[in-house]
Design a protein around this nucleic acid. Structure first.
Lengths: 242, 242
DNA sequence: CCGCTAGATGTTGCATACAACGAGGGGTTT
DNA sequence: AAACCCCTCGTTGTATGCAACATCTAGCGG
């Protein structure tokens, strides 16, 4: 039975590969099995298709992706290192679950780190504030009547905004560290929990941040960023019924 | 030739395994190839045997460790994720080099995070201060005439001291994040750069930290920790000729 | 009826073979 | 002589077979 299954799966994999040849050329490096697996599995986790506590079977993933277990294992190890999965020897990996306590940990860390990085960026003046301004305006456009039109797009722009500031801090490790910590709440779909008032406030913060950064005023930028994050934290906690 | 080499290596590997059977039982889980490889390679990097820029060949490592390339690859990916190696597709990994700028990044991050975590720990009062006190005294004992007697041991005790405080902060991610950032300067062998005065000061800080933590005075603990780290930073920079 | 053990089954861990890629060298062409 | 191409060789990337381990169940004995 096991052998039959294995053969069947191999056949399916070859089929899959034959039909997915076409879209391997548009993806930047989708032809590399390990990266491909990484991205697909990661997306399934972040999109909520695989939810907290689910076991991920190497064989099953390999078949559904259309590669062998080797690159899948590599992807799983990578996701484990990034904190999205928990790993138990000889048992496999499962999607890490999180609760309000995790959210608090993450946001209290952000409350310390992002304002600090923001003040560094303001004082160094190395941030592309025009790009930042552009991002802020594009986010404005995605919100109608205090409600987000396209959550995914809004989240992506917001991430780029924050990321750009951190990159301007001059401390590359700061951005890395925060990225590793922040990705979990992406699952939470932050903006989904904003009421119209907090959403408008959040957008206003972005514009104020641009101004403070342009003024090279570290303390101003720092305190706006602090408010920005505390406000987000509050919105999510409130909506999560905590 | 390649085949001959491969066979020779396999023979050597079997030999190695036969002779190293004895010490697989004392190590807690040294019998697991991937973990074993991870630890050995990591030690070689941290001990300075493999220095910045060195290429690590999967085959070579596999043979020297006595396992196949599969677990070695896993170890290398893990070390890459931890930031000790850099990885280039189809080319392999090389030991990451670092310079004074990296040191500055790390210490400025520590200057923000550790005092913060320390103040949290003080206010929560969940740190085992007796253990901390014990560690501090054992470190005292390892220093004679302002000079460290056993650098490795001293470093290990110091790491445990700092780790215990972070664990008491109640923010598990804080400890994780700092651990991932701090391991690079271990290579620097921090205490090797201390002059007698800074070393004595550092030891005194530890005792003051214990007192501040016992007093549940967050601000006190925070400021001592801040001094402690700035002092370390200064010592290293001075000795590195920066 | 309960507990326990042994085997069946499914999953992960590791070794190995082979494919794919990249760097370097020798030969040819201009 | 310089530029280019092709071929070789070493290395990494992937697939696959088998071993080791964990879990579950059937069968046995208490």
């Amino acid at each position: 039975m096991s052998t039959v299954n294995s053969r069947l799966h191999t056949i399916l994999r070859i089929y899959y590969r034959a039909f997915s040849m076409s879209d391997t050329l548009n993806g930047q490096d989708g032809r590399h099995a390990a990266d491909h697996a990484y991205r697909l599995i990661r997306d399934e986790i972040l999109s909520g298709k695989r939810t907290g506590g689910d076991w991920l079977r190497e064989g099953e993933l390999a078949d559904s992706i259309g590669v062998s277990r080797t690159p899948v294992r590599e992807a799983l190890r990578r996701l484990t290192a990034e904190g999205l999965l928990t790993y138990e020897r000889n048992k496999g990996v499962q999607v890490k679950g999180w609760d309000v306590a995790d959210l608090d940990e993450i946001f209290s860390l952000r409350t310390v780190l992002e304002p600090w990085g923001c003040s560094l960026a303001a004082e160094r003046g190395t941030v592309d504030t025009d790009q930042l301004d552009d991002l802020a305006h594009r986010m404005d456009a995605l919100v109608v009547d205090g409600h987000p039109a396209d959550l995914d797009r809004l989240t992506e722009l917001n991430n780029r905004f924050h990321r750009a500031i951190l990159d301007g801090s001059g401390n590359t490790r700061l951005a890395t560290v925060l990225a590793s910590v922040v990705q979990v709440p992406i699952v939470w779909r932050t903006f989904a929990h904003y009421n119209p008032e907090s959403l408008r406030r959040s957008l206003a913060h972005h514009h104020e941040l641009v101004t403070a950064l342009r003024a090279h005023d570290g303390e101003w930028a720092q305190s706006v960023m602090c408010s920005h994050i505390k406000s987000a934290w509050h919105s999510i906690r409130e909506q999560s019924g905590a």
